[in-house]
Each structure stands twice: as C-alpha cells, then as structure tokens.
Amino acid sequence: YDEVAAQGEVVRKLKAEKSPKAKINEAVECLLSLKAQYKEKTGKEYIPGQPP
C-alpha cells in the first residue's frame, strides 16, 4: 500500500515539474504495475487514503 502511495507522489511530482513525457510515462507504468500487484495480493482495488 505504501509503495503505491509513494509512486503516486513521484508521478504527481514529475507532472508538476513538467518533466519529459517519457519519464512521466515510465513512472505511470510503474504505478500501474504496483496497483496490479496490490490487487493481486489483497483482492481489492487500490483506493488512496484507505489502507487495507
């Protein structure tokens, strides 16, 4: 859960800094992968601010 939240912060920071699109896309792919792992382990969708 904490990893997903941390990666979400990374994506937000990159977007706020107007980073190159390729770098943002890479961070988003990582975030989506973490969300998929979270769902696989818990059986639930990741919802920000609602730990399992």
Rank of each mutant, 00 (worst) to 15 (best):
Y1D: 01
D2P: 14
D2Q: 15
E3W: 00
E3N: 14
E3P: 07
E3F: 04
V4R: 00
V4F: 02
V4Y: 02
V4Q: 03
A5P: 01
A5L: 11
Q7T: 11
Q7H: 01
G8D: 15
G8I: 12
G8F: 15
G8H: 15
G8R: 15
E9V: 14
V10Q: 06
V10T: 12
V11M: 00
V11S: 00
V11P: 03
V11A: 07
V11K: 01
R12F: 02
K13F: 03
K13L: 09
K13T: 02
L14S: 05
L14D: 07
L14N: 04
L14H: 05
K15F: 02
K15P: 02
A16H: 11
A16M: 13
A16Y: 09
A16W: 08
A16E: 14
A16S: 11
A16K: 10
E17R: 09
K18C: 09
K18Q: 08
S19R: 01
P20R: 06
K21I: 11
K21M: 13
A22Q: 12
A22C: 10
K23Q: 14
I24V: 12
I24A: 03
N25K: 14
E26I: 02
A27K: 03
A27M: 02
A27D: 02
A27I: 00
V28L: 09
V28Y: 13
E29H: 10
C30I: 09
L31E: 07
L31G: 07
L31I: 01
L32W: 07
L32H: 15
L32C: 14
L32A: 14
L32V: 11
L32G: 10
S33R: 13
S33H: 12
S33W: 06
L34T: 07
L34K: 10
K35E: 08
K35H: 03
A36R: 13
A36C: 06
A36H: 13
Q37N: 04
Q37S: 13
Y38G: 04
Y38N: 06
Y38R: 03
Y38C: 01
K39F: 12
K39C: 06
K39I: 06
K39V: 03
K39M: 07
E40N: 12
E40G: 03
E40P: 00
K41E: 13
K41M: 09
K41Q: 12
T42Q: 10
T42D: 02
T42I: 03
T42A: 08
T42K: 05
T42L: 04
G43T: 05
G43Y: 02
K44A: 00
E45G: 03
E45I: 07
E45M: 07
E45A: 08
E45D: 13
Y46G: 03
Y46S: 02
I47G: 07
I47W: 01
I47H: 10
P48I: 05
P48Q: 11
G49P: 12
G49C: 10
Q50C: 12
Q50R: 11
P51F: 10
P51I: 01
P51V: 11
P51R: 05
P51E: 11
P52D: 06
P52M: 00
